[in-house]
Amino acid sequence: MPLIRKPPSPPPTGVDPPADPFAGIAAADAADRWAAARALADHPAGVLALADALSRETDVRVREAIFAGLSRAATRQSAEAVLPCLRSDDASLRTGALDALRAMPMAALPLLPQLLIDPDPDVRLLTCEVVRALPPADACALLVALLDRETEVNVCAAAVEVLSEAGDASALPALRRCAERFADAPFLGFAIKVAAQRLQASAPRA
């Protein structure tokens, strides 16, 4: 019989979590910080330490572990911790924050109305993607309100795209009004037409 053997006894050495993740998250070595970030995600007091670390972390993989930990915690505090990254000039940081918020939509929900009226149109645009993860009624209410006041065509386009998946027929009047306000933006008109068709198609049939 060739050498395929039963797993050895005693079992192999396991992977040890760091002894002190609160110290490890500030370590010089990125590997130590990565392990600490993962450990803090499971610690009751870990969110604050992760939030603090996120503001200064430069290693992409450690940042990813911090975002994953914060979204796993899924508290208002952890959602608030990632918000500053939505304004970052670093695309990976913005994307990481967006993914983290999408992964904890209900924790992010109380923060979304304010984000959707943020002075920065990029923040409003990204927030539309977070809304996508919400239940239909919440998503529809937030995006219909946005469409009726929004002045940036690209933000409207993002909202329309999300509504075409997450919305329902109650969004149709707001879509029509938006199309009228941006009559000189043919791409938005086309997006609204497609979204309206989809929402109409799923409306209760008489």
């Binding site: 992977v15 993962r38 995600a41 990813e64 572990a65 994953a68 979204s71 796993r72 899924a74 993914d99 999408r102 992964a103 904890m104």
Partner: peptide, 13 residues
């Protein structure tokens, strides 16, 4: 999404 990322990190580890 959240579980998938956590699982990926655990597998990586």
């Amino acid at each position: 999404d959240a579980s998938r990322r956590t699982a990926a990190e655990n597998l990586y580890e």
